[in-house]
Nucleic acid binder design. Structure first.
Lengths: 163, 163
DNA sequence: GTGCAATAGTTGGACGTCCAACTATTCTGG
DNA sequence: CCAGAATAGTTGGACGTCCAACTATTGCAC
């Protein structure tokens, strides 16, 4: 059907022809980069209708999952495994959109709590329905493949010290 | 060994508890994001010693693979599947580092050729050896897993229209 | 109980990615 | 043969990520 050549397979062949080692690892690293690019584009397309991006959505969901609907900035960074400045950035924009409010921590004045608003909760529900409709960017992929991706990449994550 | 909880599995559980659908797809999308983050950090760590990043390395290798050691900007973007402006950005920095030179196309004056320099060729060889040593960021992962990642993600790429 | 180390968050800057808009050149259809 | 369409590349701006450096607060060791 498709007589064109897979770009990553083509790169792998060039690697081998050149006598370079680890061409499969190169292909895997490149595949992950490209898959990330594809999925992020799809997900962000959908989330843009709600004034969100994937990273902001992740933060907003995380806050909404807590009992009190609030979480210290630092905790958000730990759970999402991003740098503290990325959290500051995301919460800035969520706050500007009215989805989150910054509150002082009751006992530790160093800490800032990000608290979800009613508008935030509403938006999370709607955005999640939209993301489910596109299977978080994987709607063109078999369910078994999806499961396999989670399994294989968990080895990558765990071997990198993720928990 | 590790009594801590996998963050993505934990997120998946929360999804399910909430009654949200497609929690596996969410886990897959999140896993890809995290794996990308891990691998990019490792690869860029190594490449920084050569004044490179992964995207610049990819462009430089691609140019070096051609017969004449030169490629139009647009072709680079097509092969690496990035936006034309990303190519401009990468070539700007490669040129500043002395790894590439911009040349006018002999017959089409709209086109700019990016040509690799001797320093560029030398650097690609050294950087490639360093990347092989860390298996392009996958040195902590089994070979079978690496192959599996390429296979599974090829379905993602192909189903997205990649060729 | 006090001074220094650790922790929490922010600001400013670098980088890669994308998009919209723009210039320059080439192609093409009537 | 020429006007409009298509192509090639760049600039400027938005966004997410990271790091280094900074302020404010808390904790701890002696």
């Amino acid at each position: 059907m498709d007589d064109r050549v897979d770009l990553i397979q083509e790169a792998k062949r060039n690697w081998d022809k050149r006598g370079w080692a680890e061409s499969t690892a190169m292909a895997a690293a490149t595949s992950i980069t490209r898959a990330h690019q594809i999925i992020l584009a799809r997900v962000n397309d959908v989330l843009a209708h709600h004034g969100l991006t994937f990273s902001r959505y992740e933060a907003l969901v995380l806050i909404g999952f807590t009992k009190r609907g609030a979480l210290p900035m630092g905790k958000i960074g730990q759970r999402l495994q991003v740098h503290p400045t990325s959290v500051t950035n995301a919460i800035d924009r969520l706050e500007a959109a009215g989805y989150v409010t910054r509150l002082p921590h009751p006992t530790d004045r160093r800490t800032t709590l990000a608290a979800i608003t009613e508008a935030g909760r509403m938006t999370v529900e709607l955005a999640t329905k939209d993301l489910e409709a596109i299977r978080y960017g994987l709607d063109t992929v078999n369910a078994e493949t999806t499961t396999g991706i989670v399994d294989l990449l968990s080895e990558v994550r765990h071997s990198a010290g993720d928990f």
